[in-house]
Nucleic acid binder design. Structure first.
Lengths: 232, 232
DNA sequence: CGTGCCATTGACCATTATCAAACGACGTGG
DNA sequence: CCACGTCGTTTGATAATGGTCAATGGCACG
């Protein structure tokens, strides 16, 4: 493993507070792997053997049932995933695949549980991570239950613009079909929703989105901090 | 606080492993409160001052936005709630109200965070609790995204019958309107869905549900362990 | 008895999915 | 360099799903 990769992992809140020796145990047991675009890292229903840490690239999490599929989230580096399943040693509930060429650090689940039992600082960091994730998914469920797909799209545009520095214009970081699945809708529907938003000043040219009338968009979206604010 | 109440709390996985002294600190700082039916314990957006432990009764968790409301879950005793918000000292994302007359143990959030930092066993129990809750909500989101309301109802009936001992018949433990909101639908729609299920042998008389043809119901529901099995 | 609340039913509308076709960008092979 | 296929996107038509509004019936409680 390259020194810089180790440093990226060490800098994660999840690992930064733990004892040096314990961290080195984990790193020694782990290894780095690179994956091309669209490679399945694991399928729902499998028992995970490794805690995954995304160092570079991005990961898409999805789930499937009765022939239907949905995207639950995307992860950008740096960040750990499959934490809950690893800690509980239970089946993974989602499938994960690379959304672009990615680099992942794999740490044996056994080692993670081991250190978790011996390093209080690590245990606390795991708690913080899980609590944040838990809250994130509560927001996702609220978003899904309390909003129409058009409203979810409008809020996603506002939130993503915010994330990009509130420039009023940005490039969609994923394919539109992937965005549709993330928002819990079909690609056809996303197209039509974009068309509707054109009426209130949202310009879409290919992957580029421009907000011409933020007030109008916000009026439609009615963003709610308890759903949309990532800091809360 | 009555001794039996203290024992109920101590028996919870969340508290059973921690040091006696720490537990007694928490209990000394906390107190018991009884609430009648339909009392709001807290509103989304508030900063929680107490970790709540439900000893008796039941609690409904809901959320509201743009004038729409939805029920996210119910909790039966014994169980703790508002854990993630207490640990992170952040705003609560849901509202909680009693779904029947209930008894709740309130433990100051400050004390919880304090002990959490000093008692590794407690920290580990918090992790386990959060991980289980996290997985529960992932299942809820999958349930919502991958199924129609009729399918959610069919699976709820199967799961609840299972929980009641697979007797093929049970009484709905909550009002139908509450069940509708829990399943992410309107009461009117729930009525119609029950009517549809009558065609495949689901008898509904008032709050009593009888499954006459489990195979047919399962054929419609297509239960998925990664969504419906509470042990996974 | 009223009165109020829940459940049900009907009519209608909004939202979303499905199926099909056409379009357009892009890369490959002739 | 162009023809062609592939794949993502868009558009249209239609159907399924779910929500809204209104009216009615039943039941509990005062």
């Amino acid at each position: 493993m390259r020194v810089t990769d180790v440093e990226i992992v060490r800098a994660l809140p999840l690992f930064s507070g733990m004892q040096k020796a314990h961290f080195e145990t984990l790193i020694a047991a782990g290894y780095v792997q690179r994956f091309p675009h669209k490679v399945a890292l694991l399928h729902e229903g499998e028992k995970p053997n490794f805690l995954h840490v995304l160092v570079e690239g991005s990961i898409e999490f999805s789930s499937e049932s009765r022939g239907r599929e949905t995207t639950l989230s995307f992860l950008k580096p740096p960040g750990a995933f499959i934490l809950a399943a690893v800690i509980l040693d239970q089946l993974y509930l989602k499938s994960a695949r690379t959304a672009e060429a990615s680099m992942v650090v794999l740490i044996p689940a056994e080692a993670v549980r081991d250190v978790f039992d011996r390093d209080p600082a690590f245990a606390r960091a795991v708690v913080a991570e899980l609590a944040v994730r838990y809250r994130g998914i509560v927001k996702d469920l609220k978003n899904q239950r309390l909003r129409t797909s058009l409203e979810r799209l409008a809020n996603w545009i506002l939130a993503h613009d915010e994330e990009c520095g509130r420039l009023g214009s940005f490039t969609i970081p994923i394919e539109k079909r992937a965005l549709a699945h993330l928002l819990g809708m079909r690609p056809e529907n996303l197209s039509r929703s974009f068309a509707e938003l054109a009426d209130i000043g949202v310009e879409v040219r290919g992957p580029i989105i421009k907000i011409n009338d933020r007030a109008a968009l916000a009026e439609l979206a009615k963003p709610d901090p308890l759903i949309d604010d990532p800091r809360i």
